[in-house]
């Protein structure tokens, strides 16, 4: 279904511009990090890509999908995981059911991914009483179980402690190793370095810069990116 092409994508609410004419093509392969200060529009851009929001201008095209509609083989993990009031296992089975996976196969696949994220012994526990880190791992497992071609991650470790963050990053790396395209937002520079191959730098709704990770951090092309890397608060 990739590449994903954004053509002059705009998004506004009540006349306030949040995403401003973003044009970019995201291909299979490299891990894409959407980076930028708070309020840059990172999460909104990701929701537009994932199909949760409709652009108010421009177009979003999955070129590998014949260009029409929202492909199913994509998943998203949110900053704050939303767990259903049922067991960890049942949360994953629920996603598989919606994805049209055969009943007999659901539980097998769910157990597999639980095993990979290290939650096998919690499979029968209620998802909502798990710790924040466990819930986020479960959310990742739920997304991964769907076998997505593209996995969107919206600040997945923003609410986690360093230990849980490390574990989560390891799982993301494992998912990536199976060939899934990772698109992730973060405002954590270290994480961007560790997990990213390329950076899309967003500021005030505009795509300011796109560069491979090394190049971006060594030699940012724009003044905004340079200031952001130096840790200066963006002017507003």
């Amino acid at each position: 279904m990739l590449p994903l092409e954004l053509k002059d994508v705009c998004f506004g609410v009540n006349g306030k511009v949040i995403i401003d004419r973003v044009s970019v093509e995201i291909g299979a392969g490299p891990r894409t990090i959407i980076l930028g200060p708070n309020g840059a529009g990172k999460s909104v851009l990701m929701r537009l890509c994932h199909g949760l929001l409709r652009p108010t201008g421009g177009a979003i095209v999955w070129r590998g999908n014949g260009g029409t509609g929202r492909p199913r083989r994509q998943a998203m993990v949110f900053q704050r995981p939303v767990m259903l009031r049922r067991s960890a296992l049942a949360n994953i089975v629920y996603g598989l059911k919606l994805a049209g996976v055969a009943r007999t196969e659901r539980e097998l696949r769910a157990r597999d991914v639980l095993d990979v994220v290290g939650l096998t012994d919690k499979s029968q526990q209620a998802a909502r009483v798990l710790s924040g880190g466990e819930q986020q791992k479960l959310a990742l497992a739920r997304a991964w179980a769907l076998g997505p071609e593209v996995l969107f991650l919206d600040e997945p470790t923003a609410n986690l402690d360093p230990g849980a963050t490390r574990e989560l990053e390891a799982i993301v790396a494992a998912i990536r190793a199976t060939g899934t395209k990772i698109i992730m937002t973060t405002h954590n520079l270290g994480q961007a370095r560790r997990l990213g191959d390329e950076i899309l730098f967003l500021n005030q709704g505009r795509l300011v810069e796109r560069a491979p990770v090394d190049q971006f951090f060594r030699q940012p092309a724009s003044a905004e990116a340079a200031a952001f890397i130096r840790g200066e608060l963006p002017w507003s």
Partner: peptide
């Protein structure tokens, strides 16, 4: 309000 994005993301 809490579930909407997650459920729609899963294709509900």
């Amino acid at each position: 309000r809490e579930y909407e994005e997650q459920l729609r993301s899963l294709g509900a």
